[in-house]
Amino acid sequence: MVRESEFYWRRLHSLLGIIPIGLFVTQHLIINHFATKGAESFNTAAHFIENLPFIYFLEWFVIYIPLMFHAFYGVYLAFTSKNNVQRYGTFRNWMFMLQRVTGVFLVIFIAWHIYETRIQKLFGAEVNYDMMAEIFQSPFMIVFYALGILAATFHLANGVWSFLVTWGLAQSPRSQKIVTYVTLGIFIILSVIGMRALFAFA
């Protein structure tokens, strides 16, 4: 059953990686970036998101359900590939492997990140600037979050490339190469935004 419709699951996985997850992650990084303008600024931006109408609906249908599908199916994909960068050390083969490595790392990172913020909120903690500043008292957490953000920006940027090929938009070798450069740019820009926010808290 699942095997027969694998094509459609794979396309769904690809689509969800961009819409909504990729868009959400981009939005999330931009909101975090308000921390560079101080605690006040960040809290206002975060509250704006928190007070969106239908926030529970949005959380489940824009984040949790798509993310869980993408993550579980992604883990399945990651563990059914037999990486062979020793045999073919080409750029694309490395990207292929890193897409899987960062994906698996993201499962761990996102699980911890949600536990530390959203789940603590259920227990009455307040998610705000101070909470993040406190988390980053620990140097280990700074490194862990830095790796998490870089993994996410890489995975998203390279995912945009993969998405464009998977849906047949980038077809010629030339277009695929140009898209590679564009996604490299996306990776750098999102990483800078993410890192600036991180070090604003830390």
Partner: peptide
């Protein structure tokens, strides 16, 4: 190509063309 074992299983490592 849209069923079991078809296009859905390609992950774009692009080793084949090399």
């Amino acid at each position: 190509l849209m069923t079991d074992g078809g296009l859905g299983e390609c992950g774009n490592s692009q080793n084949c063309v090399v």
